[in-house]
Simulated assay, not measured.
Amino acid sequence: MHETTIITAFYNIGRTTRGNDQYLSYFDFWSGLKNHVVIYTTEDMKELILEKRKQHHLEGKTTIIVKELNEFDLQTLNKIKETFKNYNQTLHRKNPNNIECISPLYCYLMYLKPFFVCDAIERGVASENIMWLDFGFNHGDSFFINKDQFNFLLEKQENIINDKINFFSIKDQETNTIPEIYYNMEIFIIGSIFFGNKKSWFDFKQHFQECMQCFLSFNIVDDDQIMLLWCTRNYPQNYNIIRCYEWFGSLFNFIPKEIKNTILFKRKDSKYYKLIKEEIKNSKDKKFMLKMKMYFKYIYYKFINKKNVEL
């Protein structure tokens, strides 16, 4: 079995709410994962990021690539900037102050996720199985709460399909049109974690390029989440959507079973019965008695024990 390579990126795009130190603290939480991690960033951040991996003696499983953002797709970056300049991306949007409505560089950075992965593949620093994981995943301890537990190897579980890009959704389905979603800004597919093999990532990159050009032709730009949905609707054969009930809980799909049962997370922010429901839906091959036990557990936490407790 191929070990999963994690690819991520950090670029300071001038966000006022979160600076370098905050993002470094976010990365610090999961920097102990034992997978090979490839990180794209700028020269000034290289050593600071590497230091986080050195604390876990994982510098040998870390590749940091310094590459400027405009080196990936300058033509599209210029088109995005021009669209923001000529057309108001906040108009009629549900959350007009969100960064994707006001920052062309942010939208471009979100668009580049498959570009980072494909660049790493072309450099020969990625394995056959590749995960994109946002640099700020988990936002410190927003869901998982003990960074000392993040010292294991992420591995794909049984519901992951290798030759497709695997996305994770926080709703059962999305029936609205793309324009309606652009305005209501309601999220369907989680944008912080994707998984696939090498070929699927190159297909994904091509689809993202097509999607961006389509959006730009209508004089609109958005972050990656709506573009992920566009990909699944136009190329459904290339994507696998897995239902999750917590944003950062999507990582459970890669945590080994023996660790999954012990890892700490915030039940007080989670309707725990939904996580059990997710496990039931994804447990196709479990024995009858084990499934019955899971159903009883689901009923117990949904209807009987409704206390908000921290595991």
Rank of each mutant, 00 (worst) to 15 (best):
N282W: 04
D134Q: 01
N95K: 14
N197V: 01
L290D: 15
Y235C: 10
V66A: 05
F167D: 11
T41M: 06
Q209A: 07
L112G: 02
S250N: 10
Y23T: 03
Y295T: 03
L109S: 13
F150I: 07
N184I: 12
S103I: 04
Q209Y: 10
E180M: 09
E68P: 03
H92G: 06
N35P: 00
I255R: 04
G196C: 10
W132R: 01
I242A: 07
K266F: 01
G124L: 06
N197L: 04
F252Q: 07
D21A: 11
W30F: 06
Y106S: 09
I263L: 09
K291H: 04
I242C: 07
F72N: 08
P96D: 12
S250L: 11
F204K: 02
F168L: 12
G19M: 09
T63S: 15
S217R: 03
P179M: 07
K266G: 08
M294F: 02
L74I: 10
N86L: 09
T41H: 03
Y87W: 06
I304K: 03
Q213Y: 09
F135M: 13
F84W: 02
Y108M: 01
L74M: 13
K52W: 01
F150E: 06
I226Q: 09
S142F: 01
K287V: 11
F72E: 11
I99G: 10
H139T: 08
T83I: 13
T175H: 11
I121Y: 02
N129K: 14
D222A: 14
L229V: 05
P96I: 11
Y298Q: 05
V221P: 00
R123A: 12
C107L: 11
N166I: 03
N138L: 08
E174G: 02
E59D: 14
A120Y: 00
G60I: 01
D223G: 00
W30L: 14
I65M: 09
Y26T: 01
F218H: 12
G124M: 07
D285Q: 12
I220V: 15
E246F: 00
I189R: 03
D163I: 03
Y235F: 15
D44M: 06
K291E: 11
T262D: 14
S283Y: 01
I99M: 13
Y182V: 08
L69N: 04
L48W: 03
Q75R: 05
